[in-house]
């Protein structure tokens, strides 16, 4: 069962009221990324530096002279959020040592979309993980290049229609399965990897807090529904994120020191159709394609469950 339903006594008083990602930003109505970042910064607190990649978040949050950021923020380019964060992290370490910076713990975040992470930024990300910088990489995944107008990325799921993988007479849209970024991150043997979604705020906040408290690199993969690019109604952003979890399309899990743990395990998953049906990007799909998507999702889900079971057995 999804976490919030298990906890009817949702207690907002436990969550910081400070809005470090400001109201008045230019995100679309119902933007899943803006929501994710707002929640994540509540876990991060003000002693945080954000290194943003180019993309939706950067554009909506920083049209001069307006900024949505109430924490120090730097945007350099598209493919190098992790490299910039490497420099910031190294600088703060040495400056602290030389007594030239606050002695407090500073959370360093590299923030990028799925394109900035799984495509153009993958090399910088891999390098920074391998070098073991003490930072948190956050991928807000809306499954395409939304900022430039909904072009496919390697994180676009099978069957989704985008402007560069359009569904047509000869095409079902995206013909390849979604690149498994969290597992690529985990393959660097970093201490903390988690998938999360702002539809599960308590889960997201807890994972963000864990990531920030991890010594060394951590990775959060945040599914961020996008009404504009996924072509769903803006009020469904949270619902669709929830359906992604409830159908197993986007399982919530953590990999702590290499051990995988499922966070929300459903006895009975909803059929993927429930998730697909609200979204215009999947509207063209026929029963065969939906069946294929169900097969892909089932297989990956079972594999995750088995892995979780195996990893649990190692703990005994």
């Amino acid at each position: 069962m999804p976490q919030e339903k298990q906890h009817p006594g949702f207690i907002p008083r436990l969550i910081s009221p400070r809005e470090l990602f400001a109201e008045g930003n230019r995100g679309c109505q119902g933007c899943g990324e803006a929501l994710a970042i707002r929640q994540i910064l509540k876990a991060a607190g003000p002693d945080t530096i954000v290194c943003s990649a180019t993309g939706c978040v950067e554009i909506i949050s920083s049209p001069y002279p307006e900024t949505a950021w109430r924490v120090p923020w730097i945007h350099v380019a598209f493919e190098n959020a992790a490299a910039v964060a490497s420099g910031v992290e190294a600088a703060i370490k040495i400056l602290k040592k030389r007594g030239r910076y606050h002695d407090r713990k500073i959370n360093i975040i590299a923030l990028a979309g799925d394109g900035g992470t799984a495509d153009i930024g993958l090399q910088a990300l891999s390098g920074a993980f391998e070098r073991r910088h003490d930072f948190t990489y956050i991928c807000t995944d809306n499954e395409a290049y939304m900022n430039t107008g909904i072009q496919r990325s390697s994180a676009t799921p099978y069957g989704a229609s985008t402007t560069t993988s359009p569904a047509g007479k000869e095409s079902i849209g995206q013909t390849t399965p979604k690149k498994d970024m969290p597992m690529i991150a985990a393959a660097h043997d970093i201490p903390y990897v988690a998938t999360c979604c702002p539809s599960y705020p308590m889960d997201l906040l807890a994972k963000a807090a864990k990531a920030f408290n991890t010594e060394g690199p951590s990775y959060l993969h945040v599914l961020s529904p996008c009404p504009t690019g996924w072509r769903h109604e803006s009020h469904l952003t949270v619902e669709i994120g929830r359906l992604a979890v409830e159908t197993g399309v986007f399982p919530l899990y953590e990999i702590i020191e290499g051990r995988l743990k499922m966070n929300v395990v459903m006895e009975k998953r909803k059929p993927v159709k429930e998730y697909l049906k609200h979204q215009g990007r999947f509207r063209h799909l026929g029963p065969d394609e939906i069946e294929e998507i169900q097969r892909i999702v089932d297989e990956k889900y079972v594999r995750l469950l088995r892995r979780a079971e195996f990893d649990r057995s190692l703990e005994r």
């Binding site: 809005e19 470090l20 400001a22 109201e23 008045g24 930003n25 230019r26 109505q29 949050s61 920083s62 049209p63 001069y64 002279p65 307006e66 900024t67 949505a68 950021w69 109430r70 924490v71």
Partner: peptide
Amino acid sequence: AAVISKPGSCTYHNTGDWK
């Protein structure tokens, strides 16, 4: 370098008129 030194300055932006 067009650095913005007023944190959260977008709060002055009226996004309420979008609705």
